[in-house]
């Protein structure tokens, strides 16, 4: 019984996070402006990080935890760099 509950909750959570990633990706593609795309990328990173955590729960492998830690660090740096670029790189040449 507990295995069934566990299996289905993990599967549903993975599906939900997968759809969330698709939606964030769609926002990244659609734009319309550069800041919307960066926001979409940030959401994509954080959704992927959560998906890795759920993978870790589903497989019982704590290696996924390290992956999600690295992912959140990379997502943070990427978004900060892109925001800085939007502020200084494009509008004023």
């Amino acid at each position: 019984m507990s295995a069934i509950i566990f299996f289905w909750s993990v599967t549903v959570a993975q599906t939900a996070l997968g759809i969330a990633m698709v939606l964030a990706f769609a926002r990244m593609i659609r734009g319309p402006r550069a800041q919307d795309r960066v926001l979409g990328l940030d959401a994509l990173y954080s959704n992927a990080m959560l998906l890795m955590l759920v993978f870790g729960i589903g497989t019982g492998n704590s290696l996924y935890f390290e992956i999600s830690l690295i992912m959140s660090a990379l997502g943070f740096v990427a978004t900060v760099a892109l925001a800085k670029f939007l502020m200084r790189g494009e509008v004023i040449e």
């Binding site: 759809i19 969330a20 990633m21 926002r27 926001l39």
Partner: peptide, 17 residues
């Protein structure tokens, strides 16, 4: 907790879209 977290994240990304 899994469904709460995943559900809220999905709602958030839906709102973003």
């Amino acid at each position: 907790f899994l469904l709460l977290g995943a559900g809220l994240t999905l709602i958030g990304s839906f709102g973003l879209f």
